[in-house]
């Protein structure tokens, strides 16, 4: 376990806590993409099937359980606070992401078995799952500060995994090609957001997309 991976996992954990905090204190689902959150439930459930047959560490097991349970809880919260009268900005055709991730998983996997294909599927889906949320952000124009912090912490997590993979390549000779390539893709998807976040939030201005 190296510092990049721990910081990455912590930032992932924090992002979810920020989201739960934001939705439960405002009692509003506004500005949050239900499609993105539902995609994360699929991501975690399909990736962590190995909970049933592979033990890595207590840390690993607890984190996996946390991500599965919290993602389901978030979807439950969003449904609870979603107002039908609200004009929705959550319009991205999310099935394209599911379909694309599935095709990629069939092509790129370590073994042509259900568990390995679902594992690869979860990585590809995760790498693009934020897109409906970014679309909501763009259409809303202005977002709550907490929402932008949430997206930032979530993006930071996979970005921190990149130095972790470089570190593990040199120290352990370990190279997980599928995770690395999908992880880089995920970070690229975020790059535009990171730039705007830096300009608007770090420089203490109101978050507004052009």
């Amino acid at each position: 376990m190296n510092i990049f991976r721990i910081l990455g996992d912590i930032s992932h954990l924090i992002s979810i806590l920020i989201l739960i905090h934001a939705v439960s204190t405002t009692k509003s689902a506004q500005g949050i993409s239900l499609k993105t959150q539902a995609a994360y439930v699929v991501v975690f459930v399909s990736r962590y099937l190995d909970l049933f047959f592979r033990y890595v560490s207590l840390y690993n097991t607890l984190m996996k359980l946390f991500f599965i349970v919290s993602s389901i809880y978030v979807v439950f919260l969003l449904n609870r606070y979603k107002k039908n009268s609200e004009k929705t900005n959550d319009i991205f055709p999310v099935w394209y992401l599911f379909g694309g991730a599935f095709v990629f998983a069939l092509i790129f996997n370590y073994e042509f078995s259900i568990v390995e294909i679902l594992w690869s599927f979860s990585l590809w889906l995760e790498s693009v799952a934020i897109i409906p949320q970014l679309v909501v952000l763009q259409r809303t124009g202005e977002a709550q500060l907490l929402t932008t912090h949430y997206i930032f912490a979530l993006g930071l997590y996979r970005a921190l995994y990149i130095p972790n993979w470089i570190y593990r390549y040199y120290t352990e000779g370990r190279m997980d090609k599928i995770a690395v390539i999908s992880g880089i893709l995920q970070t690229i998807v975020y790059s535009d957001f990171f730039y705007i976040y830096y300009k608007k939030v770090v420089k203490n201005l109101k978050f507004k997309l052009p």
């Binding site: 991976r5 592979r54 890595v56 560490s57 690993n60 984190m63 370590y110 995994y161 390549y169 997980d176």
Partner: peptide
Amino acid sequence: PKVQTSHDEL
């Protein structure tokens, strides 16, 4: 380097 991995990450 090993190409196959153990899936020990989150």
